[in-house]
């Protein structure tokens, strides 16, 4: 791809992304969300982050890889427990990275 084509592609992607981000803020500037949409909103964040996390942990190159000796899912489990107990982002990342190094050494 030429630099000009790449630049054009990136600008289009950037514009589309901005339209996504502004769309609903703009649309619902002067009116309330209908009740059913409002009910949906509270689930947007957990559903999005869960889907992203599952993909990061178990999807490699478009394929689902489930292996008992894969260190990352186990380290993620440790991190999830720490996150649940402490609610602290730094502690979660620290525990998760430490657990990853331990499991990589063990397996």
């Amino acid at each position: 791809m030429s630099t000009a084509a790449l630049l054009a592609l990136l600008v289009v992607i950037g514009l589309v992304t901005f339209v996504y981000r502004y769309a609903m803020i703009g649309l619902f500037a002067n009116r309330s969300l209908p009740g059913w949409l409002h009910a949906l909103c509270r689930h947007i964040a957990p559903a999005s982050f869960a889907a992203l996390t599952a993909g990061e942990l178990f999807i490699h190159g478009g394929e689902v890889v489930l292996a008992l000796t894969a260190p990352k899912p186990w380290a993620a489990l440790v991190a999830a427990l720490v996150a649940w107990r402490t609610g602290n982002v730094l502690a979660t990342i620290g525990a998760g990275m430490a657990a990853l190094y331990v499991f990589k050494w063990l397996f």
Binding site: A45, T53, E56, K72, A76, A79, A83, T92, I93, G96
Partner: peptide, 13 residues
């Protein structure tokens, strides 16, 4: 790996 760990922390909250 810090990326999914961030998401896990957010998810727990």
């Amino acid at each position: 790996f810090a990326v999914p760990l961030t998401f896990i922390a957010l998810l727990a909250m």
